[in-house]
Nucleic acid binder design. Structure first.
Lengths: 115, 115
DNA sequence: CCGTATCCTTCGCGATACTG
DNA sequence: CAGTATCGCGAAGGATACGG
């Protein structure tokens, strides 16, 4: 977090909604591309591909391609990825758990006079 | 995370690098605007203002303005914000702790043939 | 010092069409 | 089915200048 700390670059990568959602989905179990696309609803194919490639590059997921027709590709968390799934999972839980309070705060804020 | 779950919107807000860095900074102690700008290095004034306003709207930080000259404004986590600082703090720790492994994985990935 | 307003650039991301 | 390529929009974010 500190100004010049290089870990900021890795924080920027993981503090990202798509990364969070993908890692949370994969923390449950290994999954195929199409399955991921369904679970992480709203993501486009392009962005899913790009994000998975970045995560593979960073050693967080493993890409397993089967030489079949039609093609099948599965993605799985690495050991490193599994360590990451814990804080990200906690973040996902927070979002579920406190969403109502956030929503209330938003409504209250928006309802107050524009003065 | 699930397809239609509305908590996705709050996850998108908190799974964000600026949010993470600001909340982590404020988890240490209440802080002034200028101090935050220094601690969260690289952020522009505009983005810091915008993000803080969103966080205030979501009930995560409180804005305390002093009627002085020159002006002084402090930001502080709310009770809700403090609950959030735990998973985000964990994420920050992960980034520090595993940054080296991420870096190695990146280098290895980039070094491999473009086949 | 702490904003707000404006402008402009960059990039995330979705849509579509096409390949193995 | 999985992935690539291209295009384009809109949001994120930086720089600057100004106001209370």
């Amino acid at each position: 977090m500190l100004a010049t700390c290089p870990s900021r670059t890795s924080l920027a990568r993981i503090a990202n909604k798509w990364t969070a959602m993908i890692v949370i989905a994969l923390s449950e179990r290994r999954m195929r591309f199409g399955e991921l696309r369904t679970r992480v609803a709203g993501i486009s194919g392009k962005v899913l591909t790009d994000t998975l490639r970045d995560l593979e590059r960073d050693g967080i997921v493993t890409r397993i391609a089967f030489a079949e027709m039609p093609p099948r590709v599965e993605y799985e968390l690495t050991a490193l990825g599994r360590t990451l799934s814990e804080p990200l999972g906690a973040l996902g839980l927070w979002a579920e758990q406190y969403f109502d309070q956030v929503q209330e705060a938003r409504d209250a804020f928006d309802a107050r006079p524009t003065t």
